[in-house]
């Protein structure tokens, strides 16, 4: 699998570390339902068969976290963008 790193270009997936679902947002820890929200954030996943937005870390390259749009049934990659905008 070749990940199109926005910095480095297409690179073999073995240069990257995988984390998982990139649609999750860290909840407000001060919210009254923080327990439930963190339970969902840390543990529950949509786990779709199809389009998946996911985090890959280019550990053997630019060290950027890259959000990759990939299909979990075909492994086809539709695109990739850097985390955190243009830092």
């Amino acid at each position: 699998m070749r990940i199109p790193c926005p910095y480095c270009g297409a690179r073999d997936a073995s240069e990257f570390a995988y984390l998982g679902d990139a649609t999750l947002t860290r909840p407000d820890p001060a919210a009254p339902d923080a327990d439930e929200a963190f339970h969902a954030y840390v543990y529950l996943r949509d786990n779709p068969a199809g389009a998946h937005s996911e985090w890959w870390y280019h550990s053997a390259g630019c060290r950027r976290w890259v959000k990759v749009a990939r299909d979990t049934t075909s492994h086809a990659i539709a695109g990739a963008e850097l985390a955190g905008g243009a830092r």
Partner: peptide, 17 residues
């Protein structure tokens, strides 16, 4: 060492850019 660095980068790039 590797795991912590990756974790810190995640916190910085993804959680609190």
């Amino acid at each position: 060492a590797v795991k912590v660095f990756q974790h810190l980068e995640f916190c910085l790039q993804v959680l609190w850019p």
